[in-house]
Simulated scan of single mutants.
Amino acid sequence: MANVSSYLNSLANYLWALAPGSCTPPSIQPRLIAHRGAHGRGIKENTLKAFDICLQMGVWGIELDIHLTRDAEPVIHHDPDCGQPFNRPDLIIADTNFNTLRQAIPDIPHLDEVVARYGGQLHLMLEIKSSWRDRAELPHRITESLSSLTPVKDYHLLSLVPDHLEGFSQIPPAAFVDVAETNTGEIIRQNLALGHGAVAGSFALITTTNLRQLQQAGKQVGTGMVENHAILNREAYRGVDWIFTDHILSLLPEADKQHKQRNR
């Protein structure tokens, strides 16, 4: 399914390359977010190495995924198990104590390490992968790790399920990002009803009408997954706040060049 989604996204990047604004360099550069860090070329996703590259290259933000271990330690990894990219599908994070996980796969970061290393330097887009209804300790443990940072200014919490964010009572809803897959209309409806601060989704599925509706309601909007400069230009032209990408290293040089030209 992931391969099909990736193919469809690449096709959309190709088809939308001639859309209005795609050939117009943006007057205001949107904030680029490296989806799971600057991975590829031997660098594994959601690792300190992938995030270090982003810090060194001056990327605005990183998206990363959070799971709780059996002993309620928040770690950075996309899937419930460690099959990808570590080839350990036998290790289920929720069933494994942190020390055991760290010994088996040292490259999976703890959230505290991420905050200490990048907090205030990279904007953290933290995707919540499970529900507080299943793990009651989840909101407190993550909020505790983020206590040195300022919500909205330094980080946002993301989820494909808006209710996953409702348990974080100590974090303002303005810092919550509801993420759409193919259910853009439903996610927007829930976002407006719950009063969360932002919506993110596919650049091909968040229409300009959706975008204007959200902007008029005072919401921030992020789109992904952008693969080329034409779509980056198009999304900047449309006025989105954030652009998510798995291709940060190929997009960033052009973004830096445009930024320097505007500030001469």
Results as ranks from 00 to 15, higher is better:
F86C: 05
K44D: 09
H123I: 03
A230G: 05
N233C: 14
G119Y: 04
T208W: 04
D52W: 10
I93F: 05
I128V: 14
Q56L: 12
F203V: 05
G197W: 03
N87Q: 15
K260N: 14
M57W: 04
S6M: 13
S202N: 04
L252D: 10
I206V: 12
L252W: 15
R133Y: 14
H247F: 10
L194H: 06
D90L: 10
G195R: 03
I93T: 05
L232N: 06
Y155H: 05
C23V: 07
A34R: 07
Q216E: 13
R117F: 11
C82L: 14
R135C: 09
R234E: 10
A136W: 05
P80L: 03
A34V: 10
Q190V: 00
P173C: 08
M125L: 13
C54F: 07
K153E: 13
S10Q: 12
G195A: 11
L165M: 07
H67Q: 10
T209S: 15
G42C: 06
L158R: 01
R133S: 08
G40F: 00
I92S: 13
P162Q: 06
A200V: 02
N87H: 14
P20R: 08
G195Q: 11
G224A: 13
S169R: 12
G37Y: 06
A19K: 10
W242P: 03
T209H: 12
T207D: 06
T150P: 06
P80I: 02
R238G: 00
G83Y: 00
D163W: 11
S148N: 06
I171E: 04
I187R: 05
